[in-house]
Design a protein around this nucleic acid. Structure first.
Lengths: 144, 144
DNA sequence: TTTCATGTTTGTAATCATTACAAATTAAAT
DNA sequence: ATTTAATTTGTAATGATTACAAACATGAAA
């Protein structure tokens, strides 16, 4: 929990207890959790934790570039602490979001502008059917 | 309004009056309008138009691949009828969404899969400061 | 024309993630 | 110890979207 504290201080964020808990959770759960999911888990360990604090903290982390917001599903924001630039894949069937590595000339910030606009963030994602759901489909067909 | 009717029939959508109005509006306003924006404009011409109809119609169009949903801003869905695959740029200052052409090996569906997942949709967007807002910034600095 | 069935439109009410806000609590500084 | 500022917390408000059921239109069959 030491290096996590340093991570916040580096970015100019006062490392309070709830902030450390949330950051630790994010590091341990790289499955792009929701606010609801983070809160539900943490409130067991830290009974005083409030959902507003989770919202506040995630906004702060996002502003200070500790995490990234992922807006794909349409219903709620997901959060991602994986710092390496990468894209995402949302399965339309099971709803899981995968990290995918893609050789994209924009992902690694080679370009700083498009059509004269200054790029600050790059977001790329795919929608479709994930590997797991595909094999499930195939097995069902064979079974018939 | 004839070819617009054909466009719907081709995709297996019964071309009702309100659907034609909405489709026509989308063709005439390529600035990625919101449900609110579409409704406000149309209700003047078609006083019986209901917001629910706009929602229903846009969902139908989206399902039948007449339009695409754009989820960037975080507050509301924007709609796009530009069929050529392209990416988007959201200006953090003025909130405008631009179309940008980008040589992306995924945008034109060269690849049908990543990491074993079947790709059905490709979404790419940038956030930053747009050309217009950049020059405005510069002019203000000079004026000082 | 009338009847019936189906699909479409409409308005209202409900949902649900997120934000606003102010009181309570904690930490830091003098 | 006292004051000040920052953080946390719970509740209430917001706002986009969806659920639902009644009203309406359409077109086929009798």
């Amino acid at each position: 929990m030491k290096h996590i504290k340093g991570e916040l201080e580096q970015k100019g964020i006062k490392p309070t207890y709830q902030r450390l808990c949330i950051l630790e959770y994010l590091h341990a759960h790289l499955v792009h959790p929701t606010v609801e999911g983070i809160y539900d888990e943490l409130v067991d360990r830290v009974p005083t934790m409030s959902k507003t604090t989770v919202y506040n903290t995630l906004r702060l982390f996002s502003e200070k570039d500790v995490i990234n917001e992922i807006r794909i599903t349409g219903t709620e924001v997901r959060y991602d602490i994986n710092c390496q630039s990468h894209h995402h894949f949302l399965c339309k069937k099971c709803g899981k979001i995968y990290d995918v590595d893609v050789t994209c000339p924009f992902a690694n910030m080679e370009h700083k502008e498009v059509s004269g606009h200054e790029i600050q963030e790059v977001h790329g994602y795919f929608k479709g059917i994930c590997k797991e759901c595909l094999t499930k489909q195939n097995n069902e067909q064979k079974g018939r």
